[in-house]
């Protein structure tokens, strides 16, 4: 069942993305809409390094993460001065700037024409061009990220992040460095988001800027919201749900004339119904009394 394997690979990629976003959106209370940008930076780093310089996966992965981390630190030192709604708008801006760079820096990214011919992953002579081994690799990465995030959350740093999302001033007053913690969290989250980017580029073997737009950021955020902002297990299920739902709708026989739009409408309805029915009370971040 290649089709199912393909969908599972997509699901693992989105799980990684959503879990990394959960670290800043759920635990640190910074709703970011720039995550697709970091996803894209990871993908582009790999694509450029492996197509132009034939670097292997084991080198492009850390390089992609480091580049993402550096960019995230640069961005966050500025963006974190804003809070709440202003932070969201700020990250939308960052997302659009990153997209703009991918789309217009022709000499580096080949602009809208994208980069094709990215080779499959090759680790220690093992060629992962087939879907099953690739899925196993991405499951390993997903598990590793999950464990790592759990570790962070349980640690003192994680508790500081939770405290920040509850009350920044109080956290500051007990002597924690709020600013530094936020920058660190942002950088870690961006570095983790680079991993699915690298995997995605090798998997699809062709990338172009349209895969890394604000819409994609909104989709990743939707997974986090449906899964529960601080619920890493919930995100797992939500990712599976949101990736599989539009695919399942392909199997519903509908009159050809209206099928495409009708499927989208059904998608919208199911989304609303699921939110209604599940007792997710959610976690209020944007508004606080």
């Amino acid at each position: 069942m290649e089709y199912l394997l393909h969908l599972l690979i997509l699901i693992t990629i989105y799980i990684m993305l959503a879990q990394s976003l959960s670290l800043i959106a759920g635990f640190a209370g910074m709703i970011s809409l720039a995550h697709a940008g970091f996803f894209g930076i990871g993908a582009y780093t790999t694509a450029i390094l492996s197509v132009n310089y034939h670097f292997p996966f084991l080198i492009t992965l850390p390089v992609g993460m480091v580049i993402c981390g550096i960019i995230a630190i640069l961005i966050s030192t500025i963006a974190i001065r804003t809070v709440d709604d202003y932070f969201i708008i700020c990250t939308i801006g960052i997302q659009i700037v990153i997209f703009s760079i991918m789309n217009n820096w022709m000499s580096l990214t080949n602009g809208p024409l994208g980069i094709s011919g990215i080779q499959p992953i090759n680790i220690f002579g093992l060629n992962l061009s087939n879907k099953l081994p690739f899925l196993l690799l991405s499951i390993i990465f997903t598990l590793a990220i999950y464990m790592f995030l759990r570790f962070i959350i349980k640690s003192g740093f994680g508790r500081v992040l939770k405290a920040i999302s509850e009350d920044e001033i109080y956290t500051q007053s007990i002597g924690k460095n709020v600013y530094l913690s936020k920058v660190t969290a942002f950088a870690i989250s961006a570095m983790i988001a680079a991993i699915p980017g690298v995997l995605y580029a090798h998997y699809i073997s062709y990338i172009d800027p349209t895969s890394f737009t604000v819409d994609e950021s909104i989709f990743i955020l939707s997974i986090v919201i449906i899964g529960g902002m601080r619920n890493l297990m919930g995100i797992l299920i939500a990712a599976a749900f949101l990736v599989l739902l539009p695919e399942a709708l392909r199997f519903i026989g509908l009159p050809n004339l209206i099928a495409a739009n009708l499927r989208q409408i059904i998608y919208g309805i199911i989304l609303i119904v699921v939110i209604f029915k599940s007792d997710t009370i959610g976690f209020t971040i944007v508004t606080k009394e």
């Binding site: 709703i31 955020l221 409408i265 919208g268 989304l271 609303i272 939110i275 997710t280 209020t284």
Partner: peptide, 14 residues
């Protein structure tokens, strides 16, 4: 939560 409401409104928009 307000984010959940946002998601619902996105669904209605679709």
């Amino acid at each position: 939560s307000s984010l959940l409401m946002l998601l619902v409104s996105l669904g209605i928009y679709i």
